[in-house]
Structures are given as structure tokens and as C-alpha cells.
Design a protein around this nucleic acid. Structure first.
Lengths: 187, 187
DNA sequence: ATATCATATAGGCATTTTCATATATGCAAC
DNA sequence: GTTGCATATATGAAAATGCCTATATGATAT
């Protein structure tokens, strides 16, 4: 899957592994992430498959850069992935829910502390998305050489981030209240 | 992480790998899943670590079962995981959002078809959660030998499933409309 | 009769992901 | 001066995960 994230970005313009890491961290972080070492490995694999090409670019004052460029085969591969029907939901893995599920094995106080901690993290994430203005997205779009249609899709993923975090915070608040009430009834 | 899911269930009562697969598929599927072969591997690892023990149970008319039982060390390990603070959000991986992000590379018709397909899958998932009555949860609880407090936590994870699917469908509807409007404007 | 399904365990292989580490440069901080 | 940070690439080891296959039994379906 990371393969397509890399092809997707290289479809805009040539980039290095380091560039891609920064771009992923700032734009797809909330629905796709990757470790720097994994990015380098995947780029090598893509070059071996002939989906991208690379060339070394010397820099004064900084280490050499290996710049990757997408090939026609790469573009075709990306396109066929984009068009392939998605017949399944992406399965979720959510550590907090796993913990909550088994939380009868510990004290409500311990659970509440963790829920409150998570609330603050998700509040931060929400603020991050809300702080992204249309001007920011426009700026990213220009840097990537993106088309007007890109802005629509990029904003849709940003909107998904907002809805997700709002939902998550709502669930946390609800759950914190329910556990607190349960605790009061016990007394 | 699967390790703790297995310890969590074995903390209620002794179970086989096959049992655990069925239980995970019916109760934690929407926030934690695992392949059967992965479950068997993890159980072996847990036994080697001394967190669980196993014994063979012969059955007439069916293959022998290897029944796993949690040890005191296993219980202690589970408890310390439950109490450990969770300082990070679980990172998401969502294929649909990755595709949408790069969808300027294909036709809006192709994107819309995939969004509608996903809508039907998420609608199904929502119906599944809404169909789970308190009686069903009560039934599961009795089978597992669970305490009253468990029902509260289990229902919280079910509620998370409902909110998540409602949010997802809302985002899909919004996004379908926005892409459709964009398409009309183009004409 | 034959095929498939549910039960039950497990090995093998490849891929994916994470974590730690190594190298190299130049700049800023202390 | 030396420590740490940003830039830049990469390897190695280990863990986690996913997919396929093999084995065995009895029941059910066609």
C-alpha cells in the first residue's frame, strides 16, 4: 500500500525519500504513515520493478540526494490501482478500544485517566485540522504542482480527519461520563 | 498487541486457539482482528513465556483440542498493560482515504463508484452494530463468565462502532455530493 | 458416492512494519 | 570545543501480519 502512496506523490513531481517522508508526515499522516527506513526500502523495490527511476543530485553544503522519478509503467500501475474497486472495508486497529474492552480487569480510575489522556491528544489533533486554512492547502498544492481537482480531494481527506476526531472526542466524553456514573452508583 | 487480546479473553476462562478466533471475530473485530495462524503462533509464544499453559483435551467425534489457561504471570502482565498510560493515538491506516487523496489521477466517475460501494459496506457494518441488542451482549457475557462491569465496557466499544460507522457514512455522503457538484460545474 | 463444510491445529513463506544503528555535512547553541 | 539538530541515505535484525497449504474427523448436502 505504501507503494501507491509513493507513486501517488511521485506522479506530481520527482522527489527523494527524505522529501517523501516529510510530505507524508504533513499530508497523509492521519490515514497513512511510514517509517523513513521503510520508505527507502520501498523506493528501491519500486525502482527494481521499473515503476520509478533514480538519479543522484550533488548538493553543496548538504549530502547528495537520490531523486526518484515515476516512469510510464509507474503511472499505469497507479492508475489501475486508483480504478480498482475497493470491495472491503479497511480493518481498524485501535489500542484504546482493546484496552477498554478488557478494563473490568482494572480500576475505573485507571481507565478514566487513560480516557482523559486520550481526549487531550485527540483534541490536539482536531485543532491541527481546524487550523489548516484553505490557504495552507493552496500552498501545498502549488508546491506539488497539483491541479484544481486535487484540492477537492485533499480537502475531503482533511474533512474526514475533522469528523473522525469530533466523533472520537464525543465517544470519549460519553464513555467518561458513563464510567463515572457507574462509579458513583457503586458508593 | 494481539498478545493482550488473547490474555484478556483467557482471563475469563480457558480457551483454544479456534475458540479465540471465533470470539475475536464476533466481539473485537471492529477494533482488533487476527488471522487464525497468527493466533496459534502467538499462543505458542505466550506459553514459552510462561504467561499461559496448555493441555490436550480428547474429544469423541471431533479433533483434539489444545486448551490454554492463563497463569498468575499472565494475569500480572495483563494487569500491568491495562494500567500502563497510553501516551499516543493509535495511527490509522485507511485505504479509501489514500485513494481519494490521489484521485485527481482518475475520473470522478471511478471515485464515485468506489465511494458508493464503500457506503454500502459501512451501512452493513452499522446495521450489524445496531442489531446487537443488550440481550445479545448479556448472552456473550454469561458465556464468558463475565462480571457486570464488563458489560459496561463492552457496550462502550459497541457504541464506538456505531459512532464510527455513522461518521463514516456521513463523510461518504458529503464527499459524494461534493464530487458530483464539481462534475456538474464542469459541464 | 462425492463434495463441501465446521471443527481443530499447525507449518511455511513472503511481506510489512518497526526499531536501532551507521555514515556524512554544515549550522547553531552552549 | 563539543553537543545537538536538520539534512540525506541506508543496512540489519526482529516482530507482526497475512496468505496458502496440509492434516484429520464427522456431519450435511447434492
Amino acid at each position: 500500500m505504501l507503494k501507491y502512496a509513493l507513486l501517488g506523490f511521485l506522479n506530481y513531481r520527482p522527489l527523494t525519500g527524505y522529501d517523501l517522508k516529510r510530505i507524508i508526515d504533513t499530508s497523509t499522516r492521519h490515514f497513512w504513515h511510514a517509517d523513513l527506513s521503510q520508505i527507502y526500502k520501498t523506493l528501491k523495490m519500486l525502482e527494481t520493478s521499473g515503476l520509478i527511476m533514480s538519479s543522484i543530485e550533488a548538493q553543496d553544503e548538504r549530502p547528495d540526494r537520490r531523486v526518484y522519478t515515476i516512469t510510464d509503467a509507474g503511472r499505469a500501475d497507479l492508475k489501475s490501482w486508483l480504478d480498482a474497486p475497493l470491495l472491503e472495508m479497511t480493518p481498524l486497529k485501535e489500542v484504546l478500544l482493546l484496552k477498554v474492552f478488557f478494563s473490568a480487569g482494572t480500576s475505573p480510575e485507571s481507565v478514566l485517566a487513560q480516557l482523559r489522556q486520550q481526549r487531550s491528544l485527540h483534541q490536539q489533533a482536531l485543532a491541527h485540522f481546524q487550523g489548516q486554512t484553505p490557504a495552507d492547502i493552496e500552498h501545498n498544492a502549488q508546491q506539488m504542482g497539483a491541479q484544481p481537482l486535487d484540492a477537492l480531494y485533499w480537502d475531503a481527506t482533511r474533512r474526514a480527519g475533522i469528523l473522525y476526531e469530533e466523533m472520537y472526542i464525543r465517544w470519549l466524553d460519553e464513555t467518561i461520563i458513563r464510567i463515572s456514573q457507574q462509579r458513583t452508583e457503586r458508593e
